[in-house]
Nucleic acid binder design. Structure first.
Length: 295
DNA sequence: TCTATTTGACCTAT
DNA sequence: ATAGGTCAAATAGA
């Protein structure tokens, strides 16, 4: 029973770690003063260190002191944790969850927009999406995306309603590998302009079946740069899901620094590359969500 | 021509 | 009456 508790605590810690890492990547994107950002990063690093330390202790098994006199309470706590870890069977239509994210479009599912609405008290309109397979496979999953008014242009409130009951066309490991061989045509790349600055995110989620190569070609990006930055510069960034592996920049002008990873996560990676002299933030990200993808 | 998005109209709940 | 959610015709783009 004690092992069960420890397992549950480890799982909770893993989630806390992942969420903190995700928050760290968001902090990178938020427009605030350097001092504030630095403070936030320091705090986040401390949290991550604590998570790591706790995880190590739990994994070693030596630091857990379970008071035996509380065995009844332990039993109850264990049951509670188990209930948290294995949610009860529920109606897929009743499922609902919210999240704040800088990347509302790369959750691994394909969505079709069916509406947009101005919401009272909100600067930005709310967008309504339903699963692409809502008709073909009668999938009831929907989501709403609402950009936040907090001055950080990259943050969105995403509300998911209903669980996916569909089977995406690339749901097998074999399909996923085929997709990887065919990048970028097989992958969807979401391009969005924020204040006329390009921002890209790989939205096709790679099922975490095997270490795989990721490749991002910014040529498509360059087409969307503001007219005053019309130099053609092509950067190709490569990495793997197991860590950043290599990068190179091909430029017909003078050479520039190769893109460097700005944040390495425990799994997956996140890095920025500079596209031109005004340092348009071309972010290519594979965020933590992909690891949680179910198929 | 097909598919996805946009957008005004309509429906429903409060 | 109002706000939020959805529909469906018009439109855009590949």
């Amino acid at each position: 029973m004690e092992n069960k508790i420890i397992d549950s605590v480890i799982q909770e810690m893993e989630q806390a770690f992942d969420r903190t890492a995700k928050l760290q990547s968001l902090v990178e994107l938020v427009n605030c003063s350097d001092t504030e950002k630095e403070s936030a990063v320091v705090v986040l690093e401390e949290i991550l260190q604590s998570c790591n330390a706790t995880r190590s202790m739990l994994n070693s098994g030596g630091a857990i002191a379970v008071p035996r006199r509380n065995s009844a309470a332990i039993e109850l706590a264990s049951q509670d944790l188990a209930a948290l870890q294995v949610p009860m069977r529920r109606d897929p239509r009743s499922y609902e969850r919210e999240e704040i994210t800088a990347t509302p479009y790369n959750d691994g599912y394909q969505w079709r927009k069916y509406g947009e609405k101005s919401i009272k008290g909100c600067t930005f309109k709310r967008s309504y999406y339903r699963c692409t397979y809502s008709h073909d496979q009668r999938c009831n999953a929907k989501k709403q995306v609402q950009q936040q008014d907090c001055g950080a242009p990259f943050l969105f409130l995403v509300v998911y309603k209903g669980e996916h009951t569909c089977t995406p066309s690339w749901s097998t490991a074999e399909d996923a590998q085929l997709m990887l061989q065919d990048f970028p045509t097989a992958r969807r790349v979401q391009l969005q302009d924020y204040d006329e600055q390009p921002f890209a995110h790989i939205t096709a989620v790679t099922p975490p079946v095997e270490p795989c190569l990721l490749r991002f070609d910014s040529t498509e990006h360059s087409k969307r740069l503001p007219s005053h930055t019309n130099r053609t510069r092509r950067s190709v960034v490569e990495g793997t899901t197991m860590g950043f592996s290599s990068s190179k920049v091909e430029s017909e002008a003078d050479s520039m620094e190769p893109p460097q990873p700005s944040l390495s996560a425990i799994c997956g990676f996140y890095f920025d590359t500079v596209l031109d002299e005004v340092s348009s933030p071309c972010s290519v990200g594979l965020d933590m969500d992909f690891l949680e993808f179910r198929f």
